[in-house]
């Protein structure tokens, strides 16, 4: 086997392999998507974050503007503290509204930002005060069942207890069991 042929083929192998690696990293994986430029961090308190996880996207009007950096638990308020990194290019007013949404019925959860009308803008370290918790599917279903039950037989005593139990349970777990 000729030396230069071997060199050529090994070169081809290495070039293809490295190209495939970069293609995997950028096209298949979300190396570029997860890379934000300069960011600023704001926090938001939620009573229930559902299944939100770090690195989940932060969207506004459907556009990814940042990512969830970390999730802590405030032992005084007994609330979740979600730190969000937002791209420096996107500025939001102080009274921006933060929701936790679910992509589709069973999809990943993400943070949605709805801009308010304040003139002052969010700065690094600020806190978003207006938040709305994640919708816990279990809670919704139990509420729905409770309503149905109270409609059909309103004089039934045990139904009084019913909403307590599942509601308590769902907040405890704070997660949709899927």
């Amino acid at each position: 086997m000729d030396r230069s042929t071997i060199d050529l083929w090994v070169g081809v192998l290495v070039a293809l392999g490295v190209a495939a690696f970069f293609a995997l990293a950028t096209k298949v994986g979300n190396l570029t998507a997860s890379k934000l430029g300069e960011t600023y961090t704001v926090t938001a308190d939620f009573e229930n974050i559902g299944g939100l996880k770090p690195r989940a996207p932060v969207k506004s009007a459907g556009v990814v503007v940042g990512r969830v950096d970390r999730i802590d638990f405030d032992t005084k308020q007994y609330e979740a503290v979600v730190s969000i990194k937002i791209d420096q290019r996107y500025a939001f007013p102080k009274d921006t509204f933060a929701n936790i949404y679910t992509a589709g019925l069973l999809g990943e959860q993400y943070v949605g930002l709805e801009a308010g009308g304040d003139d002052e803008l969010l700065k690094n370290g600020d806190k978003i005060t207006q938040t709305q918790d994640a919708v816990v599917l279990e809670k919704m279903i139990s509420q729905f069942l409770y309503n149905k039950a109270s409609e059909s037989n309103s004089d039934n005593k045990p139904t009084e207890l019913k909403p307590e139990a599942p509601a308590a349970k769902s907040t405890e777990l704070g997660d949709v069991p899927f």
Binding site: A25, K27, V28, G29, N30, L31, A33, R55
Partner: peptide, 18 residues
């Protein structure tokens, strides 16, 4: 096809593969 893929495949998956 591609956007769903990119949203769900992490860079960690690729390094783990390596």
């Amino acid at each position: 096809f591609w956007s769903q893929m990119q949203a769900n495949v992490e860079f960690v998956d690729v390094t783990n593969m390596l």
